[in-house]
Amino acid sequence: MRPVVQETYGPADLSGQRSFAGGFINFGYWRAVDLDLPLTEAERIRSQEDLYRHVLDAAGPPRDATVLEVGCGLGMGCAVTLREYGPASVTGMDIHPEQLRRARSTHAGLLREEPARLRFVQGAAESMPLDDGAFDVVVSVEAAQHFPDLDAFATEASRVLRPGGRVAVASFFTVDDAPGRPDELARLLDSYATGLDIARPVRALADAFAKAGFTGVRVESVGPHVWPGWDLWLSRWWEPGTWPRNFLRAYEQRILDYYLVTADRPGRNAGTADGPADA
């Protein structure tokens, strides 16, 4: 585990910061939230749950499916999946032992009630301690910006998926691989300057999936439903020009965007989507 990740999700406990309400750690999908009205914590939590809903819907109907979340954090998305989608089981995997301790504590009741349907395991995206072909669906929500090796993640996602399974990843990436993008982001955003977030084009993830044998790779920009709401929420505490507000600036300058990337593992019951990646 990289030291900056260990600190951010361990002692610093990003999930406890007021901008990440309800224990989720994501920027939110604000499409169903009226941004012209005052935002409350309820709308903030709705945005974070809606990001999971958007990803799970794109992953295909998870009902009766075995679902893996890579980078599960406190497991709030695992709880949404169990509560609303009727999967056979959900496995939350995270690299950070402290996050898993918090997840097990937060969901102690659910773990007692659903011992066969919910579990949390420690593991890295690039080396998953999970059986081959164990899952119908692999999702990852706002974690891939931390993964050191996207090729290894894609290979592992393919390995743990059954034939016909699908992977769906939501995260933020640079819009292209133009020279200087990492330096631009490091000047704008502390999370890139410290190395917490890694500057890579979305094409790198799409190509990694294709290289790992996935088909029907699709790239969808969801930035219009992420960045304005996130920035408006941050305005409660941060003035314009402060670094957290620069996420919107990086988006408006066409440096950074938020994407949903989906792909199918070939085999029986594979999705009907087909064709080259579209970034």
Rank of each mutant, 00 (worst) to 15 (best):
G229Y: 03
C72H: 02
R254W: 12
H96M: 11
V141G: 00
T81C: 15
Q145N: 10
D274L: 04
R2Q: 10
D36C: 09
V70P: 01
A178D: 15
Q6N: 06
G23Q: 09
A124T: 06
W30H: 01
R245T: 09
A157R: 01
T215W: 00
W237K: 11
E49L: 10
G241R: 14
P97I: 13
D64I: 06
A263K: 02
D13Y: 10
R254N: 15
L205R: 02
G77Y: 00
L196Q: 04
M1F: 06
E49H: 08
G23T: 07
A199N: 06
T81A: 14
A124K: 04
V226F: 10
G23S: 12
R101C: 14
M93G: 06
F153A: 05
S235R: 11
P97A: 13
S140C: 05
P179F: 09
Q122I: 06
G275Q: 06
V167P: 01
E98W: 12
P240Y: 11
E7H: 03
A170V: 01
G86R: 13
D94M: 07
A143D: 03
R101S: 15
R104Y: 11
R181P: 01
R236F: 10
D207Q: 12
L56K: 00
V67K: 04
Y258M: 02
E43N: 03
G164S: 11
Q6G: 01
D132Y: 11
T272M: 10
D36W: 10
T215V: 07
P201F: 10
R249K: 15
A250D: 06
P201V: 09
G133F: 07
I25H: 04
A152V: 07
F172P: 00
D207P: 07
E7M: 03
R63M: 14
S127R: 12
V175G: 01
E220A: 07
T66D: 15
D132C: 12
F24R: 00
F20G: 03
L68I: 09
P3E: 02
P224C: 09
V219T: 07
Y85F: 15
H107D: 12
G275C: 05
P276C: 08
D13Q: 15
N246E: 13
L256D: 02
A58E: 09
L185R: 00
D183P: 00
P266K: 10
A208V: 11
G275S: 08
